[in-house]
């Protein structure tokens, strides 16, 4: 009986949301063209970036991007704070002495009896991380990192940019973490390194935003405006900094969520 009442409530709420959203989703008024026409004519000349999306979020609406990076920083700090208090993060740099060790039963569940190790192989193996996954991700990791940096640095010319490149870099970091060998110490997958990279990138972003003031152009003014050889130099710089920050931040989050290390 109670189940039925809940279903009726669900249907009523779905119907009312449909009623509210139907005109929003189906509206067909003509799209305002003034912004597009202006950008088509003057966007490249004003900012130097051929990719107009980059020109908008690092040129015309760069304050938005600053706010967004602050939101990302807050979310990373909040998530790490909540996870650390819950005793889940065994990433390096956190005090986890309060969490109980795994019992033999838990270890038996996680360690797969059927996994095998080849002679001389230095990989951990258990049910959740097969050899295939580890080998493939370990080999792919550096390639994905390189592609992420390509997306960052060519964001003003082609599809891509700081945020996209940063997310691809974060996937590269996760690949490296999954394909990690026991002996190899990879500093890129250590939480203490990643959070320093993120903080340094945020500091660099603030410095880059202030650099225009020295040239008399105001906050987030382009200090390289008079240098005609690299018209998009400032956008390349900002793309690189934002890419580092997003890559380190999201990689840090994911590595923290991978959770308890089995040793």
């Amino acid at each position: 009986m109670k189940q039925k009442a809940i279903n009726v409530l669900t249907i009523i709420s779905l119907a009312s949301v449909t009623l509210v959203l139907l005109p929003l989703f189906l509206e067909n008024s003509p799209w305002p063209l003034s912004a597009r026409n202006y950008l088509e004519l003057h966007g490249v000349g004003d900012s130097g970036a051929i990719n107009l999306v980059s020109a908008i979020y690092l040129g015309f609406r760069v304050f938005d991007t600053l706010g967004e990076t602050i939101v990302l920083l807050t979310a990373v700090s909040g998530t790490i704070g909540v996870l650390t208090r819950a005793g889940a993060v065994l990433a390096e740099g956190y005090d986890t002495s309060g969490t109980p060790a795994l019992t033999e039963q838990e270890k038996k569940v996680i360690m797969d009896d059927h996994t095998f190790t080849l002679a001389g192989e230095k990989r951990r193996s258990h049910a959740l991380r097969t050899h295939l996954l580890e080998v493939v991700t370990g080999v792919l990791g550096p390639v994905v990192l390189l592609f992420g940096f390509y997306l960052m640095l060519y964001g003003h010319l082609s599809p891509g940019g700081g945020f996209q490149g940063g997310v691809v870099t974060a996937s590269g970091i996760i690949f490296l973490a999954l394909g990690n060998r026991i002996g190899a110490k990879n500093p890129l997958i250590r939480a203490s390194v990643l959070d320093r990279i993120e903080a340094a990138a945020f500091l660099l972003l603030i410095l880059a935003s202030l650099s225009g003031i020295l040239m008399g152009r105001g906050f987030f003014g382009n200090p390289l405006q008079d240098v005609t050889a690299i018209p998009a130099g400032y956008i390349i710089l900002l793309n690189g900094i934002i890419g580092l920050k997003v890559g380190a931040g999201i990689g840090f989050l994911c590595i923290a969520m991978v959770g308890r290390e089995i040793s």
Binding site: V71, A75, L253
Partner: peptide, 20 residues
Amino acid sequence: LTAIVIGVCISALALALAFR
């Protein structure tokens, strides 16, 4: 772009709270 990044932040924070 902004909305996607904020979506990532929201899901990360929500997952952390759910785990807590």
